[in-house]
């Protein structure tokens, strides 16, 4: 029975589907992750500066009214 289980798990772990394990182990996927993070965080900071500028305009708007 345990031998059968082993066969089943073995079949699941290697079902011939190609995954990017080699790329991951070579470490280069980290470069892509960092590039994505830089772009994303950059956009967030940009969004934040827009938020602040609108905040300043709102203050002015309140003072006028």
């Amino acid at each position: 029975m345990s031998c059968f289980n082993f066969l089943v798990t073995f079949a699941q772990s290697d079902n011939g589907v190609e995954m990017a394990t080699g790329l991951r182990s070579s470490g280069k996927i980290y470069v892509v992750v960092i590039v994505l993070l830089i772009i994303f965080i950059g956009f967030i900071i940009y969004l934040f500066t827009i938020d602040r500028r609108i905040g300043k305009l709102e203050k002015k708007d309140k003072n006028i009214q």
Binding site: N15, V17, E18, M19, A20, R24, I29, Y30, V32, V33, L36, L37, F40, I41, I44
Partner: peptide
């Protein structure tokens, strides 16, 4: 929101996913 999405970029690319035919990565 920004921190959560940043986390999903890291975990989404480096985390474990099932090896499925057709879909792959």
């Amino acid at each position: 929101g920004a921190a959560i999405v940043a986390y999903t970029v890291i975990a989404g690319l480096l985390g474990e996913v099932p090896a499925l035919p057709i879909l792959h990565e």
